[in-house]
Amino acid sequence: MTIVRDNIEMFMRYLSIEKNCSPLTIEHYEKDIMHFASFMKQQAISDFAAVSYVLVRHYLIVLHDASYSRNTVARKISSLRSFFRFLNKEESISHNPFAMASLPKKGRQLPHFLYQEEMEQLFSVCSLEDPLGQRNQAILELLYGTGIRVSECCSIKVKDVDLSMETVLIMGKGRKERYVPVGSFALSAITRYLEDGRLKLSGKSSVKSDSLFLNYKGEPLSSRSVRTILNKIIEQSSLNVHISPHVLRHTFATHMLNEGADLRAVQELLGHAHLSSTQVYTHVTKDHLKKIYNNAHPRA
């Protein structure tokens, strides 16, 4: 399976260097391709060039029998189609066997978000007396207050924060830069962290980092660590909900639109290339819907 490994590694380098994909995106691609490579091994096929459309159909049946969701199957097919297109372009294979594979229609699910009362509970958890508590509060306020992605949050440098202009420079997908406004609560949390907690964390490492958020060793914080931090905040709160950095992004967009923000403005803040990506957040909560009804209907 040496050829298979070489092909996969070549594609991973392409995603990282030429496509500027995030580490999480690359991880998902690799996971999907390795899953198919494992299936190939079971079928005694040791080269991607030997993959046929018949084998692809067999793989889709295996995915169906394994009860994968439509969204997961669609993602796997999309990943493999891109991978085989790359191999075809590099002339490692003569055709793309996934070109004819149809994507299952994705199920449309409303994004999971938190209510304002739930967010208030989260904000009351972190201890503001120690460096890690100050850092965690700043992360929580920033993620909710701006709707940025966790990878964007971890890539922020100290110089990217402009406290006087109340903005943060964000490096988005495809290395596209955008300035996002930062609210008063997030600004207060970041200022407290910069003036106290970050100075103490920075002193724990002999190599000084320009990253805004540092771990307990004084090194740049990773996306995985942010997810761990949020899980601990949930454990310390009385909430029985699932939370992730993306749930906070969903919450930001939902609350903005529910309060009357313009859809295109939210698109710009989220860093979406297409408006259709933002439109998924145009759902409204039952409370908001009832409020609109009571205010608008003459017989309410």
Rank of each mutant, 00 (worst) to 15 (best):
E90Q: 15
E90G: 12
E90C: 13
S92M: 15
I93N: 13
I93R: 13
S94W: 11
H95W: 11
P97L: 10
F98Y: 12
A99G: 03
A99Y: 07
M100T: 09
S102E: 14
K105Y: 01
K105D: 03
K106Q: 13
G107F: 00
G107T: 12
Q109S: 07
L110K: 00
P111R: 07
P111C: 01
H112D: 04
F113S: 03
L114V: 06
L114F: 02
E118N: 07
M119A: 05
E120Y: 05
Q121E: 13
Q121M: 12
L122F: 07
F123I: 04
F123A: 08
F123G: 08
S124K: 14
E129I: 12
D130F: 10
L132M: 15
G133C: 08
Q134R: 13
R135F: 13
Q137R: 11
Q137E: 04
I139A: 03
I139T: 03
I139D: 02
L140K: 09
L140S: 07
L142K: 05
L143E: 01
Y144Q: 04
G147I: 07
I148D: 01
I148L: 14
R149K: 14
V150H: 06
V150I: 12
V150P: 09
V150W: 07
S151L: 12
S151N: 14
E152Y: 11
C153F: 09
C154E: 07
I156K: 05
I156T: 06
K157R: 14
V158R: 15
K159A: 12
K159M: 09
K159F: 02
D160N: 15
D160G: 08
V161R: 03
D162C: 13
D162T: 10
D162K: 12
S164T: 14
V168M: 10
L169Y: 03
L169W: 06
M171I: 11
M171E: 04
G172I: 08
G172V: 10
G172W: 02
K173A: 05
K173L: 12
K173F: 10
R175P: 00
R175S: 13
R175W: 00
K176V: 03
E177N: 06
R178T: 03
V182T: 07
V182N: 02
G183R: 09
S184L: 10
F185V: 07
F185Y: 11
F185K: 09
F185L: 11
F185N: 07
A186Y: 00
L187Y: 04
S188K: 14
S188Y: 03
A189K: 04
A189C: 07
Y193R: 07
E195L: 14
E195A: 04
E195V: 02
